[in-house]
Nucleic acid binder design. Structure first.
Lengths: 146, 146
DNA sequence: GTACAACTTAAACCGTACTTTAAGTCAAGT
DNA sequence: ACTTGACTTAAAGTACGGTTTAAGTTGTAC
């Protein structure tokens, strides 16, 4: 089974221009062309696309993904480099997850702050000993954050 | 205690130009100035900076952070809007965490693939027993590339 | 064999989030 | 008063990851 760039784009849920851009950047060195120059995607290419999509989701820039793809094309001599890149990216993802966990905790604090303020009808509920003015929002935030 | 833009930038670990940019974009409406026009940050401003940093970490664009900051300056009539924004962002963070979890699982598969390939000295080690191999797609991928 | 949608390219354009530059001002130390 | 480093601004530049445009080609359908 083969696909044109438009069909593949639809299958992947991306714009055709994005696939052409990835091709131009060297991310799709496995791509075949028709005699007329039309790109031909094959079912087996889906695995490359999934790998690229995975690395993109980690926040890896296009140029570094290209480095990985190039190593794949080079053969077995680059296995160790590829392993190191995967491991580095795994560490990066773990760090991102930790970061998000901390961010989520802060957002949960803010949720509580605004939920209680909503019940009371005023943010002042969080700083009873102070008169309300815009500057007091800061103190209120500080209270909720700690 | 007060700080210049350079001192505050150092405290926050960002470039002074970034703080000037945030100010220009309306993210720092609480900022004071000296009679000569020099920005003066105060300790109490740290809480605003932390809130902005938190929203930035969720991937929220500058313009939406400004919307939130503007609502904070407007007072209690915007409490509900702010709560909704926080809740939406909380959902967004949970979705990001789920996404990263799936990405991590894929990276763990790839780690195993390259770890065993490294031991064997060749990716070809994975080209047998495709039917039960969780990494069969990679074998297909690299097979197709050659 | 002609129409027509979908493809091709290079090059220009876009939005985001800053950074850099250039020209000038402020404020602290001597 | 003068020097000096850090500040000020507007405007231009940068990096990234595409999208859009314009002019032309391909391939299928009738």
């Amino acid at each position: 089974m083969t696909y044109t760039v438009g069909e593949m784009a639809k299958k992947l849920g991306v714009a055709p221009s994005a696939l052409r851009y990835y091709d131009k950047e060297g991310l799709l060195p496995f791509m075949k062309r028709s005699s007329g120059g039309i790109r031909i995607f094959q079912d087996s290419d889906m695995e490359w696309m999934r790998m690229i999509a995975c690395l993109k989701k980690t926040g890896m820039p296009i140029k570094e993904i290209k480095k990985f793809v190039d190593w794949c094309m080079e053969g077995d001599t680059t296995i160790e480099k590829r392993l190191e890149l995967i491991d580095r990216q795994r560490d990066a993802v773990l760090a991102q997850m930790q970061q998000l966990k901390e961010t989520l905790a802060t957002l949960n604090d803010k949720h509580w702050y605004y939920e209680t303020a909503k019940q009371a009808g005023a943010c002042a509920i969080h700083h009873q000993n102070k008169a309300h003015d815009p500057q007091e929002e800061i103190c209120a935030m500080e209270g909720a954050a700690k």
